[in-house]
C-alpha cells in the first residue's frame, strides 16, 4: 500500500496557503486517502447489498459517514504501527491497508477471509498490516492497545498504537483504566473516540456527564483534542500531532472525532431515536464531498481524476465480490481448529 511520504519535489509548486497537514502528505498520498474513503463507502454499500440478498448472514455495523475519521487517523501510520478497532471497524481496516477482497471473503464466511471465516464483520483483523482486530465488546480493544504500546516501548520500537472506539465506550471502566495506565507509563498510544452521537440509541447527552468526550483527557493528564470528524484534513492534522507526541516519548493523546453514522446502529435499527432532519443535516456534510471539494480547490485533483478513482473502486469491489463468492467454505470438521496454537 502507499505509505505517507513527504513530497518534497511537489511542495514548492503548491499554494502557499496549503493547510499544514497537506504539506506532510504527498499528492499521491492525498489521492490515496480519497481512494480509501471511496473504497470504504462502496465496500459498506456492497456489503449491505449482499446482506439484503442473503449472501452475508449475522449482522454488521456500517460506518457510512465516518470515512474521513478512519482514513484521516490512519494517514500518519505505517505497517509498523498498530491499531485496535471496534464493531464499526470496516473503515479502520481499509484505512490501515486491508484488501477488500479478503474482507468480503470474511463476511461471506469463507476460508480466504482475513479470519478464515471464524470472525466475520465484528472481528475483522489484518495482523500483517498492524490491525489487531475489531472487537465485539465496547471498549474491549482499549486496554489491548495500551498493552501493544507497552510492547512497543519495551522493545524500543518507534511504532505507535491507535485505539479506535466509539462514544459509547467512554463510559466503560476499561476506557478509564486504560487511559490512566497509558498516561502514568507515558506510552505511545493515541486514543481515538469517534463520537457519532449515539451509543446504539442512547445519545451522548443522555449517557455522558461531560459535554465533550475529549474533556475526559484532563482527568488522565493528557491532551484532549476535538476535531471535525467529517473533515479529512482536520482529522489527519490531529493524528499527525498525536503520533509525533507519542513518538517523542511524551505519551498518549485523546482525540475526539465528532462525526455521524448515516446508517442505523446495526441491521436491527429502526431509527426511532433520531430525526430525518438530523440525518439529512449530516448527509449534507458528507466527508467524501468535503474532501473532494477541498482537494479540487487546492488544485490537487481534477474531476477526471476523481472519476477515475471512483471507477477503480468499482472494479476493486466487483472483483472482491467475485473472489469472496469463489472462495471455499470452511469444513465443519474444522470447528475447533485455531482454538489453540498447538
Amino acid at each position: 500500500m502507499t505509505q505517507p511520504t513527504t513530497d518534497k519535489a511537489a511542495a514548492p509548486a503548491r499554494a502557499a496557503n496549503l493547510p499544514d497537514v497537506y504539506r506532510r502528505l504527498s499528492t499521491d498520498a492525498l489521492r490515496e486517502a480519497l481512494r480509501k474513503m471511496h473504497l470504504i463507502r462502496r465496500f459498506e454499500e456492497s456489503a449491505e447489498e449482499s446482506y439484503m440478498r442473503g449472501l452475508i448472514h449475522g449482522t454488521m455495523h456500517l460506518s457510512i459517514g465516518q470515512e474521513a475519521s478512519a482514513v484521516g487517523i490512519c494517514a500518519p501510520l505505517t505497517d509498523a504501527d498498530y491499531i485496535t478497532s471496534t464493531h464499526r471497524g470496516h473503515g479502520h481496516c481499509i484505512g490501515k491497508g486491508a484488501e477488500v477482497k479478503k474482507m468480503l471473503a470474511e463476511f461471506f464466511g469463507k476460508e480466504d477471509g482475513y479470519c478464515r471465516g471464524r470472525g466475520g464483520s465484528m472481528h475483522i483483523a489484518d495482523v500483517g498490516k498492524g490491525n489487531l482486530g475489531a472487537n465485539g465488546i465496547v471498549g474491549g480493544g482499549i486496554p489491548i492497545a495500551v498493552g501493544a504500546a507497552l510492547s512497543v516501548k519495551k522493545q524500543g520500537k518507534d511504532s505507535v498504537v491507535v485505539s479506535f472506539f466509539g462514544d459509547g465506550a467512554n463510559n466503560e471502566g476499561a476506557f478509564h483504566e486504560a487511559l490512566n495506565m497509558a498516561s502514568i507509563w507515558k506510552l505511545p498510544v493515541i486514543f481515538v473516540c469517534e463520537n457519532n452521537g449515539y451509543g446504539m440509541s442512547t445519545s451522548t447527552k443522555r449517557s455522558t456527564a461531560v459535554p465533550n468526550i475529549a474533556d475526559r483527557a484532563s482527568a488522565y493528564a493528557m491532551p484532549g483534542v476535538i476535531v471535525d470528524g467529517n473533515n479529512f484534513g482536520a482529522v489527519a492534522a490531529a493524528s499527525f500531532e498525536a503520533c509525533d507526541r507519542a513518538r517523542r516519548g511524551e505519551g498518549p493523546t485523546l482525540i475526539e472525532s465528532k462525526t455521524y453514522r448515516i446508517r442505523g446502529h446495526s441491521r436491527s435499527d429502526r431509527n426511532r431515536y433520531r430525526t430525518k432532519e438530523e440525518i439529512e443535516a449530516w448527509q449534507a456534510r458528507d466527508p467524501i464531498g468535503i474532501f473532494e471539494k477541498e482537494l479540487t480547490e487546492l488544485g490537487l485533483i481534477t474531476p477526471d481524476e476523481i472519476e477515475k478513482i471512483r471507477a477503480e473502486v468499482e472494479v476493486e469491489i466487483a472483483e472482491g465480490l467475485e473472489f469472496a463468492k469463489a472462495s471455499p467454505l470452511p469444513s465443519p470438521s474444522d470447528v475447533t481448529r485455531y482454538v489453540y496454537t498447538n
Binding site: Y82, P143, A148, L150, V152, Q155, E177, N180, M181
Partner: peptide, 23 residues
C-alpha cells in the same frame, strides 16, 4: 506494579502478549 485496575491490567497484558512480549 500496576494500578488497582484488574480489567485494564489484564487487557494490557493481552495486548503485550499479542505483540511480542511474554507477560
Amino acid at each position: 506494579d500496576t494500578p488497582i485496575s484488574e480489567l485494564g491490567g489484564a487487557g494490557v497484558a493481552i495486548g503485550a502478549a499479542v505483540t511480542g512480549m511474554r507477560p
